[in-house]
Amino acid sequence: MRISKGRSQRLLGSAVAVTAGAALALGGTASLAQASGPHVIDGKGAAYNDWGDEGDLSRHSHANSNATRLWQTVLYADGAKWKDSNGNRHTFKKWDIDGSFGRKTESATKWWQQREDVEDVDGIAGKETFGVADDYLDGPGYNGRVTYSGYKHDVTFKRLGSTYYVKIGSEWKKAAYNWRG
């Protein structure tokens, strides 16, 4: 279980992300997520700053992908809540990790963003949301293991080379922004 970091650490992280984003924009370079080829969630060095340059996951962008599975695993780890059509809240469960960014994932993402003090509570897992989430990553360790310390569960991903993998059943699959990745 994690202890939430203070607002000052988030502001520092945001300043670093803005500075890095400005450098990329000025340099005319593609983001790391786009530069890595088959559009995968990627990183290098310590895991705690890997995801702040990732692309958007939403109902309208990369809605069916293993990158979505990775994000849904974060929602599960934190015990995110989603709201049904009657306004009742339900906990995001392990079986909700299906790689499809539907209304349930969007609602749970909004809940997560509000809990984590993300500026734009929009239900889109984008740079800011991923950048907050990666603060709770540790690794990589033995065999490329990266641990996300959630409020309810700790979960494990793999980062081999610079590419993240998510466990599906008994297999590790690239956390790609499309099914073919």
Rank of each mutant, 00 (worst) to 15 (best):
G123W: 05
N143V: 10
D138M: 11
A125H: 01
N88Q: 13
G181E: 12
D84I: 11
T68K: 12
G45M: 11
T109Q: 07
E116L: 01
L11W: 13
D42P: 06
V166W: 03
A67D: 00
Y148W: 05
K44M: 14
G55V: 03
K110Y: 06
G37N: 11
Q9P: 02
L57Q: 00
D96C: 01
Y142I: 07
I124F: 02
L24D: 04
Y76D: 04
V118I: 14
A20E: 09
E116N: 08
D120G: 00
R145K: 12
G181H: 12
A63R: 07
H39M: 13
A46V: 09
Y48A: 12
G123F: 02
T68A: 15
W71T: 08
G37V: 09
G27H: 00
D120P: 04
Q114G: 15
G150W: 05
G43I: 02
R7H: 14
D135K: 05
D78I: 02
I41Y: 01
A176V: 00
S65A: 14
L26T: 02
I3P: 00
G181A: 15
Y177N: 00
A80D: 02
Q34G: 05
E54M: 11
D138Y: 11
G150Y: 05
A80P: 07
G52I: 11
I168T: 07
K110S: 06
R180F: 13
K81N: 13
S14Y: 12
H62K: 07
K174E: 14
L57E: 02
S162N: 13
G55A: 11
Q9E: 15
G131F: 08
I168V: 14
Y136A: 03
R2M: 06
D120H: 14
G161N: 09
G144I: 08
E54V: 01
G55P: 05
T109A: 09
G169H: 03
S14H: 13
A22T: 09
K94N: 00
W172Q: 08
G139T: 02
V146K: 07
N143P: 10
D117R: 14
G131D: 05
N143C: 11
V74S: 02
P140Y: 02
K44P: 10
K5I: 09
G126D: 10
Y148E: 07
L24Y: 08
A133I: 12
G150D: 04
E119Q: 09
N66P: 06
I124G: 06
E128H: 10
